[in-house]
């Protein structure tokens, strides 16, 4: 690791004031939460912030039901705590399943939900700190396009970058029209979660709309009663502790066999947390058969582009969507689970 100065402020306001003068992300200071991404990347010299502002003393670690169906989730709630929380486990299993199916128990005990949505890609060329990579070193090129791109994205790519978004929980959170609460030295703002991440386009080094001194402090989300019928299906190289090759987050509002409303998120296949709204629209009002689910999956992957090694992700992703839709439709809801 390169040397850095370490700070541990005691309030969110102090934290953003402290990190503010440090300049652009990558060269400037960074916030430290669980550290499971940034310490890893600092050891690889992929990032080298001159200062770390540790937010470990700021609280922000509660999940609160604020009535009227609004759930408030602090940015420092750990993945492990959130995965076990009844507000997720019982009311929207997809939000719990996407957490316990991610990472390892040791990592989940430390990694926070604020940091989780900001975790960096696992593209091997980004991480090796040697190859051309427009995300790590803007303008240097992309070694992945013609390289070993088996793990990389087929949706939301550009001619600059095909790095896949590696996380799981964000692909479930995006189903619930969540709001991200942030703080800067100039005050706070709300960001629609679906607007937080930006696809690579011409600037793959820019991954979110967050400012350099902007701290995620928490999330607000609305969980509809019918989200008890939700699943997270994750296809990967080994059965546990692996990143998704393809994943699907599904929540269904059903009237018998008919879909009132469907929500569909995709992981492992896109450059950003991905919501498949056209497929959702197609499903509304349909009787959910395997044939209908297959058509929805095809719509979800319209425009998908493989780069050779990752061509298999298109059929794998479609099959994952079909399985998730049928699994969600088959969920047996009990009255007790809703209370």
């Amino acid at each position: 690791m390169r040397p850095f100065s370490y700070h541990r402020p005691s309030s969110p306001e102090d934290a953003v004031a402290q990190v503010a003068p440090m300049g652009p992300a990558g060269q400037g200071g960074a916030f430290l939460a669980g550290g499971t991404t940034i310490v890893d990347l600092m050891k690889l010299h992929v990032v080298a912030p001159p200062s770390l502002t540790d937010i470990g003393a700021l609280g922000l670690d509660a999940i609160e039901d604020r009535g009227d169906g609004t759930l408030h989730v602090g940015a420092r709630v750990t993945m492990a705590a959130a995965a076990e929380h009844p507000a997720f486990r019982d009311r929207a299993p997809v939000l719990s399943d996407a957490l316990w199916k991610a990472a390892s128990p040791q990592l989940r005990n430390v990694a926070t939900l604020g940091g989780n949505v900001l975790q960096r890609t696992r593209c091997p060329y980004f991480r090796d700190n040697v190859s051309p990579c427009n995300k790590r070193d803007p303008g240097s090129g992309c070694a992945a396009m013609d390289g070993i791109n088996r793990l990389l994205a087929v949706l939301g790519t550009s001619d600059q970058c095909i790095a896949s978004y590696a996380g799981d929980w964000a692909n479930a959170l995006i189903l619930f029209d969540a709001t991200v609460e942030t703080l800067t030295a100039d005050g706070g703002r709300d960001i629609a979660f679906a607007d937080l991440h930006v696809p690579p386009q011409d600037h793959p080094e820019r991954e979110t709309i967050l400012g350099d001194d902007e701290l995620i402090t928490g999330y607000r989300l609305q969980i509809p009663e019918w989200a008890r019928r939700s699943v997270y299906v994750k296809a990967r190289d080994r059965e546990s502790y692996a990143f998704a090759l393809a994943s699907a987050a599904v929540a269904l509002d059903m009237d018998g066999d008919t879909v009132r409303e469907a929500r569909l998120g995709l992981g492992g296949v896109a450059t950003v947390p991905w919501r498949a709204r056209e497929a959702e629209g197609f499903l509304a009002g349909k009787t959910l058969t395997e044939d209908v689910a297959t058509q929805a999956a095809q719509i979800a992957f319209q425009g998908a582009q493989g780069f050779g090694h990752n061509d298999f992700k298109i059929p794998l992703g479609q099959n994952t969507v079909v399985k998730a839709l049928l699994d969600a439709a088959a969920v047996q809801l009990t009255e007790e689970a809703g209370q």
Partner: peptide, 26 residues
């Protein structure tokens, strides 16, 4: 040394973590 193997697992306040990815200061 990158949180992938678990050989460095310890208990921190009774909770298991990867000691390779946690700064001592934190």
């Amino acid at each position: 040394n990158h949180g992938q193997c678990g050989a460095c697992t310890i208990l921190l306040d009774g909770t298991r973590i990867n000691s390779c990815l946690m700064l001592a200061a934190a």
